[in-house]
């Protein structure tokens, strides 16, 4: 009986597993393992070094019922996501539409608008802190030329989050590139046909360009939504002392979580926070996926 050995199919599937073994080990060791550990840890008073006692749902209960800073940080993050995602998406589409024109020197402009996307990290934040300086910064200087008395940007709690969104708009070059590539892929014959029918440029944009790039819009919205919830560095650097000031207006979810974990050593609490965030982002992404068929158009797909 044993002579028959394994069928070709089974053999191949075993080969397959061997080939992906490095990934499986990596996934279990570095992703699934820590994920499960943080889930278990969220029900404890884990402090990283010396204690890990089971305390039930106390962390979750304190977070939701008592913790005012938790609510502040969640509100700040939602505010930021709700404003920045639509604005950066619209900004990127607008910019790529402009850069999709056939005018002399367009390559130069494409490079110019893409440049901010290759700069990253703390350097950019420090640069923007100088630009947004209320008294001497470039932004208020330029606003002054047209007679606008600029706000206090990073020093005024009402303006801190808009400041960050402004900074994000400056660096939409990355997603602009995706939109541009997808716009270039739209068949010229569609525009020619529309032109013969007498459609204006605007109507061509609305009825041809936008539907044809919806897959990229969908991708951009999903990734920037998730990225938006992960905002941390900006607040850590730009709120001056890293505490999320002024008046807690830059205390984002991840910053508060970081403070709980590494300033107060309340890792169990921080783990509970990360799971609440995970659930929120998960639900939003599922909603996004469910809504997608209603507006995302894939070429060559039967409807």
């Amino acid at each position: 009986m044993g002579k028959r050995g394994l069928s070709m199919r089974r053999k191949e599937s075993i080969y397959g597993y061997i080939f992906i073994l490095p990934f499986i080990i990596g996934f279990i060791g570095f992703t699934a393992g820590p994920l499960l550990f943080s889930f278990a840890g969220s029900f404890t008073d884990y402090n990283i070094t010396s204690q890990m006692e089971f305390i039930g749902v106390e962390n979750y209960q304190t977070l939701i019922v008592e913790d005012g800073l938790f609510r502040t940080s969640l509100w700040n993050t939602l505010y930021y996501v709700l404003l920045s995602v639509p604005l950066t998406t619209l900004g990127a589409i607008f910019l790529s539409a402009l850069l999709n024109q056939d005018v002399p020197g367009i390559r130069f402009f494409r490079t110019l608008y893409y440049l901010p996307a290759i700069l990253s990290g703390v350097g950019v934040y420090l640069l923007w802190m100088q630009l947004l300086e209320p008294g001497t910064g470039m932004v208020n200087l330029v606003l002054g030329w047209v007679g606008i008395d600029g706000p206090n940007w990073l020093f005024d709690p009402d303006w801190t989050k808009p400041s960050l969104i402004l900074m994000k708009l400056w660096s939409v070059g990355g997603s602009m590139l995706l939109y541009l590539a997808s716009m270039q892929g739209v068949s010229k014959s569609l525009y020619e046909a529309a032109e013969i029918d007498g459609a204006s440029r605007w109507r061509q944009f609305i009825h041809i360009t936008i539907p044809m790039i919806t897959p990229v819009i969908f991708f951009d919205v999903v990734t920037s939504l998730i990225g938006g919830f992960q905002i941390f560095q900006e607040a850590y650097i730009m709120s001056g002392n890293g505490e999320g000031g002024p008046a807690n207006s830059l205390l984002f979810y991840n910053l508060y979580m970081w403070n709980q974990a590494f300033e107060n050593f309340d890792m169990g609490y921080a783990m509970a926070m990360s799971w609440i965030l995970f659930v929120i982002v998960f639900i939003l992404t599922v909603i996004n996926l469910k809504l997608a068929p209603r507006w995302v158009h894939y070429e060559g797909e039967d409807k």
């Binding site: 800073l69 005024d156 709690p157 505490e243 999320g244 000031g245 002024p246 008046a247 300033e263």
Partner: peptide, 19 residues
């Protein structure tokens, strides 16, 4: 009271901002 100042600074910020 670890990082107690995180609870005081925002309030004082609001005072200096006039709210």
């Amino acid at each position: 009271a670890p990082s107690y100042f995180n609870y005081i600074n925002p309030q004082v910020d609001e005072f200096f901002l006039g709210s």
